[in-house]
Simulated assay, not measured.
Amino acid sequence: MRPRVVCGIAAAVALFATACGSGGGGSASITAQPAPTAGYPVTVADCAGKETTIAKAPTRIVTSNAASLEMLLQLGAGDRVIGTGFPPGKGTLPSALAEQGAKVPVLGDKAVPKEKLLGSGADLYVDTFGAMPMMGGGATGPSEAEFAAAGIQHVYLLSTACAGTPKAAKAPRTDLAGIEDDIRRLGAVTGTAARAEELVTGMEKRIGEVRTALAGVPEDRRPSYFVFDFDAGTKQPVAVCGRQVANAVITQAGARNVFTDCDADFKPGSWEDVVAKNPDWIQLSVRNRGSEEATRKAYDDAEAFLRSFPATQGLKAVQEGRFVRLGSEVTTIAGVRNADAVRQIAATVHPDLVKNGQ
């Protein structure tokens, strides 16, 4: 039988990880369930085009961080995840997935240490980060030869893993096709392809409704938009650039990312740059704090900073109170909920055309 080929791109979004705690599941254990047998072998490629063939459904999966963990939970393969790095912080996962996600053992509060990963007993490692030094301690991750010796196959979330690499497409990312491809790819790898199609169909329906509603809005009437990552610090803003997932979310929502021409995923910026752009709207982007009250306070603090900081007090968006309160997790991290973020932004910046942003 000829392997099915599922292709795409790869890379590193560590931004999500900066807010993650222990996830409350460090000592829990999960018993792997029987995996599907149909639809194999499946062949997937990494950022450089190197192919890996998955001969059968994995039964013991380790994820590099909460982004790939959430995607597997959404696919219904969460019962086969035996460990994760960069675990989701309290309140980060959707409520329907939170209990199961909390049971996943935490193998590293940041990156999974090399020795622990190789000794985990995993047969598959799903990597959001791509080829780069493992974060925390400066050590490098396992080589592909070491993965093979340990019996672990190594695949990537390609939509995030290559965004900051030389192999990434130079043009700004303007749609969610790469994220949808990742969902389908993981569905093929884990034998949950039917569920993957359900998720993608739901995303396309929500995004398609927004696209139809905004079809008559010309480019010059689409408001400019700045993502203020409050948790990344206030001394120096982080520019969310054209290669980042958020650029696609913003574009699909009928707005124009003020840093879309920045040829990277993220890049250190300056308040002078933001002032020069004078955005029409500012997203107050914060991590979920684990409760509505705490998260609301974080949004309030972010808004209060912009209203009191001399460099930003006079910005159009600040003066007119044009703020979008939307979490980092659904904006800058690849996942099913990117489609919900598109609708929420669109409903806020185009309220006469798009309804029900929640």
Rank of each mutant, 00 (worst) to 15 (best):
V258F: 09
V258L: 11
D261T: 15
S224T: 15
V258N: 05
V274P: 00
E272S: 12
A264Q: 15
I207A: 01
G242R: 04
D261H: 12
D265E: 14
V240P: 00
V217E: 02
S224E: 07
P218Q: 07
C262I: 13
V217G: 05
I207H: 03
Y225E: 03
K267Q: 15
V217A: 06
V245W: 01
N257Q: 12
S224F: 05
A264F: 12
A232Y: 10
D263W: 11
V274S: 02
K235Y: 00
A239R: 14
K267D: 12
T212L: 06
V210H: 04
P237Y: 02
D263G: 11
V217R: 03
V217I: 15
G254N: 05
D220F: 01
G269N: 10
R243C: 06
N247Q: 10
I250M: 07
E209A: 15
F226Q: 02
V258K: 01
V274L: 13
A239V: 04
K235R: 13
N257I: 08
A232S: 15
F266Q: 07
D220E: 14
N247W: 04
F230A: 14
G208C: 05
G242F: 01
G269F: 09
R221N: 14
V275H: 07
A253G: 04
E219D: 14
Q236H: 11
C241I: 13
K267Y: 13
C241W: 12
F228S: 07
D263M: 12
G233D: 09
F226M: 06
G216L: 07
G216R: 04
G216S: 08
G208A: 05
V258D: 05
P237S: 10
I250G: 02
E272I: 12
D265H: 10
D229V: 13
S224Y: 06
D273N: 15
R221V: 02
C241Y: 12
W271T: 08
F266L: 14
C262L: 13
A213G: 10
T212C: 00
A276N: 14
A246Q: 10
A248P: 04
D231M: 09
N257F: 06
A232T: 11
I207M: 09
